[in-house]
Design a binder for these strands. Structure first.
Lengths: 145, 145
DNA sequence: CCTTGAACCTACAGCTACTGTAGATACTAC
DNA sequence: GTAGTATCTACAGTAGCTGTAGGTTCAAGG
């Protein structure tokens, strides 16, 4: 196995910061890489691949713990697909819940702004609405998301 | 002005934790309340009102700095409504961007899962997709949100 | 009056997922 | 040889709380 990439090159190809890679190493998400004579980290293609797996999962909004689980699944020889499935499904539910919540927020915010644009500065509906929760149309945003 | 509410009562009515209130006080979002003889915090209706303003803004996703700005606007005598408007509008844009991003994630996640359900455990598309960014249909999720 | 238990107090550590900084060393190009 | 960039370690800081430890205060019951 060739170890040919510096941390900077790897960071660039993964679209993340150098510190992020060191952070992943520190928390055990990436293995300790070998070092050059001058004590600089050297990465193989395999390492690069793992990092891109992590970044992709993170881009998809998976929390680090889920990424950890996904890695251990994909590392295990029998690839327990159902477990990976379940993690992805949990994540999907979470994403959908967040979308719902954000849409409720959007509704309330734009309602607030619509009214305010029409009114005078003296009776700013933005501030009034914020002051008085009872003016809310939607109460959905109180739900966890 | 009557100071009649304990921190616990205020927390309950605002739907937040006691610690959160102390935290808001610490960072200067809530004024230092008066204290009872036994050194316990006592709040007025005005304090309760301000906390509910803060919580409502937070429920709407405003970051604390925006909340700070909104408070100072609503505290100022001439109520610069346009400034409040602008903050709300920024927030609305942000919410919409987040919705877009999350919808892209949703699409990719469900695509991933759809394929996986159909396939065999041996070629888990969840793990494969995560491994290979090039399998992505949407690349939108790379945009900041 | 005394005790019990809940609510309160301060001060600080911990959470997620990084990001930034300081000061030192290594590598690359001219 | 030297300049400039990349890397190294170690640690502090970010947002927005939340939890914990170890101690006080308060309200109710016996």
């Amino acid at each position: 196995m060739k170890y040919e990439y510096t941390i900077g090159q790897v960071a660039k190809s993964a679209g993340c910061k150098v510190q992020t890679i060191r952070y992943y190493e520190q928390i055990g998400l990436l293995p300790n890489p070998i070092r050059s004579e001058g004590n600089q980290r050297l990465y193989s293609n395999r390492d690069v691949h793992r990092l891109s797996f992590i970044r992709h999962a993170r881009d998809l909004g998976f929390p680090l713990q889920a990424v950890r689980d996904l890695i251990s699944i994909s590392d295990s020889p029998d690839h327990a697909c159902e477990a990976a499935d379940e993690i992805a499904e949990t994540q999907l539910k979470d994403v959908r819940a967040r979308i719902q919540r954000l849409q409720a927020l959007e509704k309330e915010l734009s309602r607030m702004l619509d009214h305010c644009h029409g009114g005078k500065a003296s009776d700013c509906l933005v501030l009034e609405t914020l002051s008085d929760h009872s003016l809310c149309v939607t109460e959905d945003h109180k739900n966890p998301a």
